[in-house]
Simulated scan of single mutants.
Amino acid sequence: MDTYGGRRTQGERDAVTVEIGYALCSAAFAAAVLFEAVAGPAYLFGLPGRVRGALVGAGTVLAVAVFFVRVVSVLVRFGRGGQPSQPGRTSPDS
């Protein structure tokens, strides 16, 4: 990503901004889905207070963990260059 002198072009800066936004949005979606899958039944079935608290706590911990893992995995994959621009090709000039 670095060009001569360590400066990034506007296109590279835009790509980083878009990738960060994608990482945050996809991580928030994944965390919300996981939280609802774990904690949702506690509210849906009207479970007692302790059970509900345990499910909500577990859902929160898992959702936070999934959020950070997703953000890191997307940004690390982006930093390595990701995939070729066209399937089956090794470089854009092929």
Rank of each mutant, 00 (worst) to 15 (best):
T3W: 04
T3Q: 03
Y4W: 13
G5Y: 05
G6S: 04
R8A: 11
T9F: 04
T9V: 03
Q10S: 08
Q10N: 06
Q10L: 14
I20H: 04
I20N: 03
Y22K: 13
A23Q: 12
L24V: 15
L24D: 07
S26I: 13
S26Y: 08
A27D: 09
A27Y: 04
A27H: 01
A28L: 06
A28Q: 08
F29K: 09
A30S: 13
A30K: 06
A30Q: 13
A31M: 02
A32F: 06
V33T: 14
L34H: 08
F35S: 05
E36P: 00
E36F: 06
V38G: 06
V38T: 11
V38M: 10
A39V: 10
G40S: 12
G40Y: 07
P41V: 15
P41K: 13
Y43W: 01
Y43N: 09
L44V: 10
F45K: 14
F45S: 12
L47Q: 02
L47T: 13
P48Q: 08
P48V: 06
P48D: 15
G49W: 12
V51P: 01
A54C: 14
V56S: 01
V56H: 04
A58C: 15
G59W: 05
G59N: 10
T60D: 09
V61K: 10
L62D: 11
A65L: 15
F67N: 07
F68P: 07
F68M: 08
V69A: 13
R70W: 02
V71Q: 02
L75W: 01
R77S: 10
F78A: 09
G79H: 03
G79D: 07
G81D: 11
G81Q: 06
S85K: 12
P87K: 03
P87W: 11
G88Y: 01
G88P: 07
R89V: 09
T90G: 12
P92K: 05
P92R: 13
D93H: 09
D93P: 00
D93E: 13
S94Q: 12
S94L: 12
